[in-house]
């Protein structure tokens, strides 16, 4: 197989099947005929949209982490819970490993992902080609699994319902920011066209 032929092929990374590339329009996707895995799905304005989402996400992530998600009122006392205060509370109880997991999945990885995405998209937009660019985008993909904002949101709901009998539970400002943050990260991953990103990174290298 020569390099021209290789360019026309696409590999399924879940079952290793070699498939001939077919042009698809925006909104369509190509799937592996053997295992059904998504092979390619071109997205419109992927870089710009991802940059926009990364920016809004980075703005929202600060209040989402530090402003109260829920407040509890009981016998005249008010207690607040933020993403960070939960981590600190566990740490104070000497559960540093659980605190680390929660910090990673709830705060740090989502933040890192947005930061990496912003950097990569700015580089692509401005035709900058730092040598670390491929590494950073690879790293984005690597940490992707470990951000668990959507699980955290469900946990907030469950904790709130559990405490309903005991006290009055009110949503805080942080919760709205948190939901906004979750929406931007979902929109980001929906609009991310990795194949296009890699192609652009590669073209940068050559040209």
């Amino acid at each position: 197989m020569n390099s021209m032929q290789i360019e026309e092929m696409v590999a399924c990374h879940e079952c290793d099947l070699l498939v001939k590339k077919r042009p698809v329009a925006y909104g369509e996707k190509g799937c592996c005929p053997r295992c059904g895995n998504k092979l390619y799905e071109p997205k419109k304005d992927s870089v710009s949209r991802c940059m926009a989402m990364a920016m809004s996400g980075l703005i929202l992530i600060i209040p989402a982490n530090f402003l109260p998600l829920v407040t509890m009122e009981l016998l005249g006392r008010t207690e607040e819970d933020t993403l960070i205060s939960g981590v600190l509370a566990l740490y104070r109880e000497d559960y540093w490993f659980v605190a680390l997991i929660v910090f990673m999945a709830g705060s740090f990885v989502p933040f890192l992902k947005l930061l990496l995405m912003l950097f990569v998209t700015i580089c692509l937009k401005m035709n900058l080609r730092p040598r670390s660019l491929p590494w950073l985008f690879r790293f984005y993909h690597e940490v992707d699994t470990w951000g668990m904002l959507e699980v955290y949101l469900l946990a907030i709901l469950i904790a709130a319902v559990k405490l309903l009998d005991l006290a009055e539970i009110l949503p805080g400002v942080g919760l709205y920011c948190f939901v906004g943050l979750l929406l931007t990260t979902i929109l980001l991953s929906v609009n991310l066209d990795e194949a296009q990103f890699w192609k652009m990174i590669e073209d940068d290298k050559n040209g």
Partner: peptide
């Protein structure tokens, strides 16, 4: 990971 997060929130919130 759901239960771990629920514990985190409860530990931070219910501290009276």
């Amino acid at each position: 990971m759901l239960d771990i997060f629920v514990i985190t929130i409860l530990v931070a919130l219910v501290n009276l």
